[in-house]
Design a protein around this nucleic acid. Structure first.
Length: 363
DNA sequence: GCGTATGATTATAG
DNA sequence: CTATAATCATACGC
């Protein structure tokens, strides 16, 4: 193993410019005749370009048939492998591309790349059911979606197959070519392997584009069909009134508990939602929107607040004293003082609410 | 049609 | 996980 690099080095240099290389060949143990042979062969190789074409062909043929040819050829292969591969081989060995993994995962999750059609639609149905909560009429709503999805799926698969086929064809073509050439050029199996790797990488980068565009198509489809914002329906008058009633009667702490939300949902009869959103979430959304919009512009909601406060005051006939307090136009801040036990929940809201209403009051 | 209202989603922070 | 703030996409009233 010690002399191998030296040997190859001399070969490399020799190939580049020194025809008289035969003398450097392995010594001692080798027979004289063999040494002579190698010198001859190299000499012939080096001078082959000086000859005419016919002569060169003849020489080439002779060299090809020479008994030392396989051994020398192997040496050449080894040299090339060591030099070329050491130069270019170091940068390879990439980990699986994270973006590709992401795309693959998404396609799998959307039921595009997974098992056959049954699995895909089942996954879609499951997703729809999971998102829908009360998905009574969802199936009819989503049939169009599923049809489009399977269309995408089909295109994806045929394209993928095409790429796969092209890749295989090209790979075998190149492999055959290289094998063919390996008879006359120093091409090691390892190099062929490497070339195959390169081809596969190229093709998989093309595949990635397909996956990318498929993902985009699925996302667009999803947003077209599954985005609830596109199917928005306003709550009916009664539901809004009930929600507003709760909101303004709990103005100091408008954070309904889970049970309260459930209760409100029931009272509002917003059980059948056209959108893939749970009833509970609709109530949450409503309160989230209401809080933020109220806080942003208390003045705008003042009238509404008074109205609902008045209504609750009228209904709550028993609590006349507090009712009148809540009834008066400018007492949202006093609500907190009347229910100190509620303040631990959302002190931030309370603070903002108080300061804002105080400001409004002063103006 | 257009501006506003409104329900839902997304991003972000605690 | 929830609440908030910003934003989106539609509904609604004019």
């Amino acid at each position: 193993m010690d002399e191998q690099p030296r040997l190859m080095h001399s070969h490399g240099v020799g190939m580049a410019g020194h025809p008289g290389l035969g003398q450097h060949m392995p010594d001692g143990t080798e027979g004289e005749g063999r040494k002579q042979d190698i010198g001859d062969i190299l000499q012939q190789i080096m001078t082959i370009t000086d000859q005419s074409l016919d002569e060169a062909q003849a020489r080439k043929h002779a060299l090809n048939c020479h008994r030392m040819k396989p051994a020398l050829f192997n040496v050449l292969c080894e040299i090339k492998e060591k030099t070329v591969l050491s130069i270019r081989g170091a940068q390879e060995e990439e980990p699986p591309d994270p973006q590709l993994m992401r795309l693959d995962n998404m396609l799998l999750a959307e039921g595009v790349s997974g098992p056959e059609k049954g699995g895909g639609s089942a996954a879609a149905a499951a997703a729809a059911a999971a998102a829908g909560g009360a998905g009574a009429d969802n199936s009819a709503e989503h049939s169009d979606y599923r049809a489009k999805l399977s269309q995408i799926r089909q295109i994806y698969h045929t394209e993928l197959e095409k790429y796969e086929q092209a890749c295989n064809e090209f790979t075998t073509h190149v492999m055959n070519l290289l094998r063919e050439q390996s008879r006359t050029r120093p091409i090691s199996p390892k190099e062929i392997e490497r070339m195959v790797g390169i081809i596969h990488r190229k093709f998989s980068s093309i595949q990635m584009q397909l996956k990318q565009s498929t993902c985009e198509a699925v996302m667009i489809l999803r947003s077209r069909f599954l985005d609830a914002r596109r199917k928005r329906r306003n709550f009916n008058k009664q539901a809004t009134e009930i929600l507003n009633e709760y909101f303004y009667s709990h103005l100091s702490n408008p954070y309904p508990s889970e049970e309260a939300k459930e209760e409100l949902a029931k009272k509002c009869s917003i059980t059948v939602s056209q959108v893939p959103v749970t009833v509970w979430r609709q109530v949450s959304n409503w309160f989230g929107n209401k809080r933020i919009r109220y806080k942003k512009n208390i003045g705008k909601f003042q009238e509404e607040a008074n109205m609902y406060a008045a209504r609750t005051a009228v209904t709550a006939a028993s609590a006349s004293a507090q009712g009148s307090q809540a009834n008066s136009p400018s007492t949202p801040n006093s609500a907190g003082e009347f229910r100190p036990e509620q303040r631990l929940d959302r002190s931030v809201w309370l603070l903002l609410n108080q300061t804002e209403s105080e400001m409004v009051q002063r103006v």
